[in-house]
Amino acid sequence: MAVHSLLSVVAAIVVLVVMVHPHRAASASSRGRFGVKSVDQGDIAVTGLCTSATIMHAGYKCQEYHVVTDDGYIISMSRFPQGRNGEGVGSNKQPVLLQHGLLVDGMTWMLNSANESLAFILADNGYDVWISNTRGTRFSRRHLSLDPAYKEFWDWTWDDLVTDELSATIDFVFKQTGQKLHYVGHSLGTLTALAGFSEGNQVDKVKSAAMLSPIAYVSHITTALGNLAAKAFVGEITDLLGIAEFNPFGAPVSIFLKALCANPGVDCYDLITEMTAIRYGKLAKFDYGSARSNMEHYGQPTPPIYNMSNIPKDLPLFLSYGGKDKLSDVKDVQILLDSLRFHDVDKLDIQFVKEFAHADFIMGVTANNIVYNQMMAFFRNHQ
């Protein structure tokens, strides 16, 4: 890979890292709450996955929607209501919501051929497919009152994805279709769902949930860059650079990247495999940095823990994880599974794919036969 191309990739990834764990400004309380679940689709210019998707994969009907979260972020969602060239047309089709992981957007579900990409496989198999794009990604960079050019736009943590964004997207699909939905998450998309479900968030609107490369605990990350990135999520990156969004080719970023990649054992040529999605060590809410601040927000000196054992025991769960996954490490998945040990046995389907790494669950050319077919069988068993 050319040096310039490598730096472009690294820079883009670091930009997204900062987006996901933003700077908590003193003016955070000025954000307000909007209580809006949808927006007039005619009020916003149509931008989203559909243009790219129809160029890459002809024959699929694609629709764009926009959802406004309770904290005012406008989330782009794309819908594939039927399969290629109109296959699978019919009423009351089962909706499926796909939620991507960190460092990517909804395009992650359609990067391979139509026969290998989950979004199109589901559409061709008669599902009503919905794809969400997390706030801050290229298709969801709008807000009712905040401008992404200013740090106030980035004043959120992944906890807000749990409390606001997960709620808004699931609720929107439920109301649009009138049906409970199947949820599919990868990486960060599993983290937000597991955390949300543990607090009863939108569980009544979910028929089942499939977690690909599930992340809830990261005590056993084995890669150097993964550990560095996880520890950086306490905010040192934004404190170092002094801004929430920054020029990826500017001098401060260049210095940061060189320092990061100079650490022993860090391989900057394998960033997708190396990067992780959450803070190091435990699944807890945002730490405001002091016992006093945490008391103000939570009524206790330390951030509350998301308790995975609180996930409703009758919620059908499909968990698929890989033996070569350095982010969703096997030992960490076992901790998650232990917390689900009292889950209804007929509602928990666990798949271990020895040869799969983190990205194989969304980009592997064999994922269709190995993972997706079993996942769709799981869906059929829990209609």
Rank of each mutant, 00 (worst) to 15 (best):
A259L: 11
A195L: 05
E245L: 04
P214Q: 01
Y217I: 06
D270C: 02
E199D: 14
L188E: 10
V203E: 03
R279Y: 02
V206G: 08
K282S: 15
P214N: 04
D267L: 00
I255L: 13
P264I: 00
A229N: 06
L225P: 05
I215E: 01
A244K: 07
A284C: 12
A229T: 12
S187M: 10
L191V: 11
C261P: 02
Y269F: 07
Y269M: 10
C268S: 03
V218D: 07
L228Q: 00
A230H: 08
L271A: 07
V218I: 06
G189C: 03
V234K: 02
A224I: 06
N263T: 13
E199L: 15
G189W: 09
A277Q: 02
I221F: 08
R279I: 04
K285C: 03
N247S: 09
A277I: 03
N247H: 00
G200H: 15
E199V: 14
A262V: 01
I215R: 07
Y217P: 01
S198K: 11
A259W: 09
P248D: 06
D239G: 12
E236V: 04
L228R: 05
Q202A: 09
A277C: 14
S254E: 05
D239E: 15
F256A: 11
G200I: 15
E274L: 00
A232D: 05
L260W: 05
A232Q: 04
L271T: 15
K207G: 08
S254A: 10
G226F: 08
M211T: 04
F233L: 08
I272A: 15
L260K: 07
H220N: 15
Y280N: 02
Q202L: 11
S187V: 08
L191F: 11
V266M: 04
L260P: 09
F249C: 15
I272T: 14
A232G: 01
E245V: 08
K285H: 06
Y269V: 00
A277D: 02
L188Q: 15
G189K: 11
A230Y: 00
A262I: 10
G250H: 03
F233I: 00
S213T: 05
V234N: 08
N227F: 07
T222L: 01
G250P: 00
C268N: 03
V206F: 10
D267E: 07
P264M: 02
S187T: 04
K207A: 14
G196E: 11
I272C: 11
A216G: 03
T276E: 07
G196Y: 12
F197D: 06
A210F: 09
N201T: 15
A262F: 14
A230P: 01
A216R: 00
N247C: 00
A244T: 13
P214D: 01
S213C: 12
A262K: 08
D270I: 02
V206T: 08
A244C: 15
V206Q: 12
P264A: 12
D270K: 14
V206L: 10
E245F: 04
T192S: 13
N227P: 07
